[in-house]
Design a protein around this nucleic acid. Sequence first.
DNA 1: TGCTCAAAGATAATAATTCTCTTTTAGTAA
DNA 2: TTACTAAAAGAGAATTATTATCTTTGAGCA
Lengths: 144, 144
Amino acid sequence: MTTEYFREQLKLKGLKVTPQRVAIFEAVANLRNHPTADHIIDYIKNNHPNISVGTVYKVLDSLVENQLLKKVKNEKDVMRYDAILQQHHHLYCSKTDQIEDFVDYELDKIITDYFSKKKIKGFKVKEISLQITGEFNNNSIHTK
Amino acid sequence: MTTEYFREQLKLKGLKVTPQRVAIFEAVANLRNHPTADHIIDYIKNNHPNISVGTVYKVLDSLVENQLLKKVKNEKDVMRYDAILQQHHHLYCSKTDQIEDFVDYELDKIITDYFSKKKIKGFKVKEISLQITGEFNNNSIHTK
DNA sequence: TGCTCAAAGATAATAATTCTCTTTTAGTAA
DNA sequence: TTACTAAAAGAGAATTATTATCTTTGAGCA
């Protein structure tokens, strides 16, 4: 995914295209495994040694507001971020706190079908995501 | 649910039965809608005006460790606690940040069946919970 | 009834995030 | 191309949730 793509996305949302925004957006997309603000800051410091922590938080918030990123949290630790590319679920490793994306259209269809038949009274469903907790049972590094 | 029940539960886990532990455990069970540590402290201060914040956090941690409580988090705010241990899902209101339990055995069966057929490579599933985001479309207060 | 270790209390420390205020800059229009 | 302006970035203080440390208390048991 090219830098131009990120610039485009920002423009489409009516956001000013600043080097910081591009860098942060790119960082979240490139850093797999749902980086924390801290991970992002580390990563960016290479090219933007003077970036301010406050800026990173502010940019992350505005990217989330504009639905270019998503926040992800498990029960254990701090806020993490995810570049939304498609509907997906999360695998949480209860041992290592690793978070990994899980995409499964067949499953999505089953769940969508289920909720189109069975409504929840007093609640309008917008989005469903599964939190699948368990353990990675090998030591392969699940990065793409 | 009587106080005696909470004392029993603590004993069964080999935890010393202290007034603070009973009060905190009871508070989480009585306070619906997944209280934060702060909610719990407020609630408890009525009967235990001198309880220490550190104690509340320590007790909550040990109750979670002993599987008498669960931690719940959404993308927005601080850690919340849940006294319900039966398998259930959560409805998150994107407007009000309200969290509500959602129990649906039929759905659970569908999902369990699905994952018993289709394995995720390299990952051993322990628990699946749905995060259903949407909006409560009436102003009924969803407490029992 | 007294002993002992775990738990509670008090409060300092830490860490993540937000806020405030100043400076800079992207986008726009002359 | 330059100048203008509002929005964004920078700097660092402030806030908030949570954890850690150390002392005192009390639950469970001999």
